[in-house]
């Protein structure tokens, strides 16, 4: 094949014409010229990340609040009847906050229907729990307590890992993903096996009612709050963390210490670590990537 002598400038990125370069010739200027690094990369800054980590802090705090309440009830330091009243009261407060948030975004007619639905389901849950309490109390009677503690830990870890920490984009549209459903189920199973360690029916009822409030209803509220202002989020996080630390403080100083360290790490150090680790981000894009078809 006859080929003309070419200078490096003449090299073109084509295969159909034989060029006068060796097959292993690397064109210095054009090789990898279409490579783009970190093209879609938006660097994260510290404080927004701290704010995002608040949801995780809140979640862990609620788990420890729940555990402290369990220990208190089990050691008869807290009367189950008081606990039922506290749960009822905080439910009402939570519902009031929900209503306030609803009044901003949702239409009046829908709100009325929503209220009826909420009333109906709360009565249903209340009655169902009431009737199931004796069964739940003896559910794991044949199992040793050690296994229950281990199982509970695993289930709560699962719950923390799978929980949905995202903020709610459009109000009213609560779409549960599979992982968040799994997470909720893990938490409910954990509280049921814990409750089965209690001796009185009323104690079991109080604990499970509390767990329903903390692990199923509160996450909905947290989604809504997350979409709202920074101050509200910061305050709730502060309140919950302090409550968790204060409640554990009455039980064990070691746990209190570990919990406070853990919460501080998650809220303040972990975002800093992520910001630092971003300098290792290396996303490579080029013509070899599978194109994304744009269809109207």
């Amino acid at each position: 094949m006859t080929v003309l002598v070419q200078t490096p400038k003449d090299w073109t990125k084509i295969l159909w014409k034989r060029q006068s370069f060796q097959d292993n010739y690397i064109p210095p200027a054009s090789f990898l010229s279409s490579l783009r690094r970190n093209s879609n990369f938006k660097p994260q800054t510290y404080w927004p990340l701290v704010l995002l980590s608040c949801a995780i802090t809140q979640h862990i705090s609620t788990i420890f609040i729940f555990l402290s309440i369990f220990v208190w009830i089990q050691q008869s330091k807290l009367d189950p009847r008081t606990m039922v009243w506290i749960t009822g009261g905080s439910s009402l407060v939570g519902y009031a906050i929900w209503e306030v948030l609803d009044s901003i975004s949702v239409k009046t007619s829908e709100r009325y229907a929503n209220r009826l639905k909420a009333l109906k389901s709360s009565i249903l849950i209340f009655l169902a729990l009431m009737s199931l309490t004796p069964v739940l109390r003896t559910l794991t009677a044949a199992t040793s307590s050690d296994s229950i503690w281990a199982l509970t830990s695993i289930l709560f870890i699962l719950n923390t890992l799978l929980a949905d920490y995202s903020a709610l984009k459009n109000a009213g549209q609560v779409q549960g993903r599979l992982t968040s459903v799994l997470s909720m189920n893990a938490a409910m199973s954990a509280s049921i096996v814990l409750a089965s360690r209690l001796t009185a029916d009323i104690a079991v009822f109080a604990l499970i009612l509390f767990s329903v409030q903390v692990f199923t209803l509160y996450p909905f509220l947290r989604h809504r709050l997350k979409a709202s202002s920074t101050i509200i989020q910061g305050t709730t996080t502060m309140l919950l963390s302090i409550l968790a630390v204060a409640l554990t403080a009455s039980l064990s100083w070691t746990i209190t210490f570990l919990l406070s360290i853990g919460l501080l790490l998650i809220t303040f150090l972990a975002p800093a670590f992520l910001v630092w680790a971003q300098k290792y981000k290396n996303e490579i894009r080029g013509p070899w990537d599978v194109a994304v078809p744009k269809v109207n």
Binding site: K13, I14, L15, W16, P287, W288, A291, V292, K294
Partner: peptide, 24 residues
């Protein structure tokens, strides 16, 4: 053809029309 990967290298431009991977 869509202009992806090594396709632009294999034929001279007067034998092939290229399109971005978009419907329009």
């Amino acid at each position: 053809s869509t202009k992806v990967g090594g396709v632009p290298e294999i034929l001279p431009e007067d034998m092939i029309s290229f399109a971005a991977p978009e419907e329009d």
